[in-house]
């Protein structure tokens, strides 16, 4: 069930376009953000109804873009470590294995307390400050193992 708040956001997004279908991406993201960063089949179908688009087309869009989390639920903090070339040259793999060890999970998994999901990302456009990662909307740059430990501890303390 979409909340009033989400429905209002979708209404606002629609104003940016002449075509209802153009609001699909923004609507899906609004729904995801208001649903703990996850997208369910039911919510996708609700978006289809609002925007008057065939549900299949909505599923196709959700399946095409990497930022829609519908395959399996992600945790409260979604860690995406860039492992493209610039970050890899400066030690991204080392950071990834360090985080796997610290969090006790492997890439693609979520901690049992649903606090962290650890995945990789392909170039997040922050190459001059490599290695870097994105957690939620925030960028963390010029990373070292010590910095990563502190970031994770701070997020845990905040939650």
């Amino acid at each position: 069930m979409l909340t009033e708040k989400t429905l209002e956001k979708i209404k606002q997004i629609q104003k940016n376009y002449h075509s209802k279908k153009s609001a699909v991406m923004g609507a899906l993201m609004a729904v995801q953000r208001d649903s703990g960063n996850n997208l369910t089949r039911e919510d996708m179908d609700a978006v289809a109804k609002i925007l008057d688009v065939n549900p299949v087309e909505i599923h196709a869009v959700a399946g095409f873009y990497t930022m829609y989390n519908w395959k399996k639920p992600v945790g409260r903090h979604h860690i995406q470590v860039c492992w493209n070339l610039s970050c890899s040259l400066l030690g991204a793999e080392h950071l990834i294995s360090h985080m796997e060890k610290t969090l006790g999970i492997t890439l693609g998994e979520t901690t049992p307390d649903s606090m962290f999901t650890l995945t990789t990302a392909e170039c997040l456009g922050s190459c001059g400050t490599a290695p870097m990662m994105q957690i939620g909307d925030d960028y963390y740059e010029d990373l070292t193992v010590e910095k990563v430990d502190k970031i994770l501890a701070d997020l845990r303390a905040r939650s």
């Binding site: 153009s22 609001a23 991406m25 993201m29 990497t66």
Partner: peptide, 27 residues
């Protein structure tokens, strides 16, 4: 003027894929 957010797809930097995406489809 409006801002349209992508959702994670390098190919949308190709101009016609970008247009497909702006129209609400797969890029």
């Amino acid at each position: 003027l409006y801002v349209h957010r992508g959702a994670g797809a390098y190919i949308c930097g190709e101009e016609t894929a970008l247009l497909e995406s702006l129209e609400g489809g797969r890029g």
